[in-house]
Design a protein around this nucleic acid. Sequence first.
DNA 1: AATACTATTTAGATTTGTCTAAATTATATT
DNA 2: AATATAATTTAGACAAATCTAAATAGTATT
Lengths: 219, 219
Amino acid sequence: MNLTNAEENYIKSIFKLQDGTSVVSTNAIAYDLDTKPASVTDMAKKLKEKKLIDYEKYQGITLTAEGRRFALQIVRRHRLWECFLVDKLSFSWDEVHEIAEELEHVKSEKLVNRLSEFLGNPTTDPHGDPIPDAQGKMSKSKQLVSLDKATSKRLEVAGVSDQSSSLLEFLKAKGIRLGTQIEVIERYDFDNSVEIKIKNQSAFTISEQVSKTIMVKSL
Amino acid sequence: MNLTNAEENYIKSIFKLQDGTSVVSTNAIAYDLDTKPASVTDMAKKLKEKKLIDYEKYQGITLTAEGRRFALQIVRRHRLWECFLVDKLSFSWDEVHEIAEELEHVKSEKLVNRLSEFLGNPTTDPHGDPIPDAQGKMSKSKQLVSLDKATSKRLEVAGVSDQSSSLLEFLKAKGIRLGTQIEVIERYDFDNSVEIKIKNQSAFTISEQVSKTIMVKSL
DNA sequence: AATACTATTTAGATTTGTCTAAATTATATT
DNA sequence: AATATAATTTAGACAAATCTAAATAGTATT
């Protein structure tokens, strides 16, 4: 089966968001892919037709075994290209994501396997994320870190270590929820506050108290 | 200005076909891109709008200076990726075209320049075709060879060394014209005949007499 | 349980790139 | 020059992927 780039992007996003969680919501995917919920519904019907996801109206989305197989292939391609860009073309690890996002859609199994070999069959990418092997086997994903200790600039919210409603309310007001993608603009040493930016919003600063409670993984 | 993959493919095709010739016909492009003349007309309007080609109804197509700049960039990307595949991933030169066809559309100038550097700034690709430099400067293209002496399997008809009408008639009947893409299936040593195949047709054999007159370049 | 709010879906439109069939223009032939 | 043939264009349609606005379903709140 041959997937379009758009289909691959949806599969990849669902795979990422499903990690841990059982089902993925229409809105979560829309937010992750920077598109509209209506578009996600449209695509969900298509992917269900192709048996890559399980989907029933209003019930959320999960990958089928087949869908997962594709997802792992795409992740493999993405992370191998990131390795190539950093190891061979001396890009820095924070500028490779966008380029790998394009390279990952080049569909040739032979190419990916040769590339992997050329790179010495690496098992993690420059961000520390594990690379699935040709059979789709992948080691457990990286430990989560709290936002105040994270080292990369592009992060995704993976959890909150404090469940107090005042904190959750604050996060909600700021637009921070599970899966929210964050860009670290600046870290201020004098009070350990962090200036961050969420897609399509202006930047704002959060205190150490708060950043300690936000668990993130790098993108 | 950002071009879609389809637009890039048209620009590349026009550039290739224009080589030598003054204007390129709708039909020639359609044939080269394996599409329909009507589609070419549609795209021609779009590319004219973007000032990448000069085009007047029924008058054929030529690239503008701007269009040529883009074409050279695309050719540069394509040929550098072919070098990468052959030199670094040990592909053979006859299996890299399709993959490079996809890789060439990854749009990052930094990537291309880093790749070129990584490969030692090569000036010709694995087929012997010259690679434009970052400024779009490129040495003259390869000499043409007659079909009986060609070494690669994928060829394009670039001319005929004999103008006799009986030959031209024969070629016309076989569907061989300027720009026709040929795949060499087999060469028979006992009479130096060649079995060839033209896109969307079944294979047929031509004699040495004929193959000597057909000038080709490798693709 | 009724109401309000949020998430999701539907309906209908848009853009890009393509197609077929018919109409038009250019070129070749008698 | 008239006619036949070939090349090109137009008109109208379609699929993929998206969007907006409106309708509907699910969840939360009083």
